[in-house]
C-alpha cells in the first residue's frame, strides 16, 4: 500500500465521464492524501480538467464516486452534491485554467465574495443586517481581516482597492488562489496555476503552495503542465492519458516511468521498448 492510500482526504473511485459518444474520463481511481500536494498531469486532452470539474461538481460524472473524508464523522459524496455545496459544505475550493476573477470588482471585494458562505448567514440572510440586528459588523470585520491576511500572503495588500481585472497576469493568478483560500477549504484544487507565469513568479507560486500545505495544513490537488514545477513540489503524481490513468506514483518513480514518457512523447506501443532503453541509458 502506498502512503496516500492509508487515510486519504479524497478518494476518486472508478470515475467515468462521457460526453455523448466521447469518453473523456475512463474509470479513473486515485487518492489525495491529507496535507499532500498531489499533481494531476497528462498531455493535452487527457481529461484532467474534466476530472477537476467532476470533483468540484461542475459536471456530474457518468459513473464512479468522489468521496471526501472529513476529519469529522461525515464523509461527503461529492458526485451527489451541488457545485456550491461542494465548496460551502464539503469545503473544496478551486481555481480555473482561464482565470475567472470578478474583474470589475476590487481585489478586496473578490475576497469578500469568497467569504459569502460565512457572511450570508452572519448578515441574518440580509434581513438582520438591514435592520441592524445580529453581529454582522463583527463578522464583516473578521472577514476583512482574513482577506487582508491572504492578501499579505500573496503580496497584494497594497493593491487591495484596485480592480481585479487591472492586475498583471501573475497577480491575477495569485489573487485567484487567495480567493479560493478565503473560502477556508480543506482541499484546494488548482487548474494550471503556473500557466503563463515567468520563472520568478513560478518560484513564488511554489513557495505559496508549500506554505499553504505547511502552515495551513491544506491538501492541494493541482493540474500542471510545467514539469519543473510538478517535480519540485508534488508529493504524489497521477498521470492521465486519453482519459485513463496510466501511472500513480511519487515524482521520482514518474520520472522514470516509460509509459509516462511515451504518453508525453506520443510514441506508439511498439516503439516503447526503444524509448525505455533510451531512458535507462
Amino acid at each position: 500500500m502506498r502512503p496516500w492510500q492509508y487515510d486519504p482526504l479524497l478518494k476518486v473511485g472508478h470515475l467515468t465521464m462521457r460526453f455523448g459518444g466521447l469518453t473523456a474520463v475512463d474509470n479513473v481511481t486515485f487518492q489525495v492524501a491529507r496535507r499532500d500536494i498531489t499533481a494531476l498531469i497528462g498531455p493535452n486532452g487527457a481529461g484532467k480538467t474534466t476530472v477537476f470539474n467532476c470533483i468540484t461538481g461542475f459536471y456530474k460524472p457518468t459513473e464512479g464516486t468522489v468521496e471526501l473524508r472529513q476529519p469529522g464523522p461525515h464523509d461527503f459524496r461529492l458526485e451527489r452534491m451541488d457545485d456550491h455545496d461542494i465548496n460551502s459544505v464539503a469545503r473544496v475550493a478551486r481555481t480555473f485554467q482561464n482565470i475567472r476573477l470578478f474583474q470589475g470588482m476590487t481585489v478586496l471585494e473578490n475576497l469578500m465574495v469568497a467569504q459569502h458562505s460565512m457572511l450570508w448567514p452572519a448578515s441574518g440572510y440580509t434581513v438582520g443586517a438591514l435592520l441592524g440586528i445580529g453581529g454582522f459588523v463583527k463578522a464583516q470585520n473578521e472577514a476583512v481581516e482574513f482577506a487582508c491576511h491572504w492578501l499579505e500572503r500573496v503580496g497584494l495588500l497594497a493593491r487591495a482597492d484596485e480592480a481585479a481585472g487591472g492586475l498583471p497576469y501573475g497577480d491575477q493568478r495569485k489573487l485567484e488562489i487567495a480567493r479560493a483560500m478565503c473560502t477556508r477549504p480543506l482541499l484546494l484544487c488548482l487548474d494550471e496555476p503556473a500557466a503563463g507565469l515567468n520563472a520568478r513568479e513560478s518560484d513564488g507560486l511554489n513557495e505559496l503552495l508549500f506554505s499553504i500545505r505547511e502552515r495551513d495544513g491544506i491538501s492541494i490537488l493541482l493540474i500542471e503542465h510545467d514539469m519543473s514545477v510538478v517535480m519540485r513540489i508534488s508529493d504524489h503524481i497521477v498521470v492521465l492519458d486519453y482519459g485513463k490513468k496510466i501511472a500513480d506514483a511519487t515524482p521520482e518513480e514518474i520520472r522514470n516511468d516509460p509509459s509516462v514518457i511515451a504518453a508525453y512523447l506520443g510514441v506508439p506501443d511498439d516503439e516503447l521498448a526503444e524509448v525505455e532503453r533510451e531512458v535507462h541509458l
Partner: peptide, 19 residues
C-alpha cells in the same frame, strides 16, 4: 456582492459556494 459577482462570473460564484 453576490449579485454583482454573479454578473461578473456566475461559474466562479458557484465555485465559491454561492448558491
Amino acid at each position: 456582492r453576490a449579485w454583482e459577482a454573479m454578473r461578473e462570473d456566475e461559474i466562479a460564484c458557484r465555485s465559491l459556494g454561492i448558491n
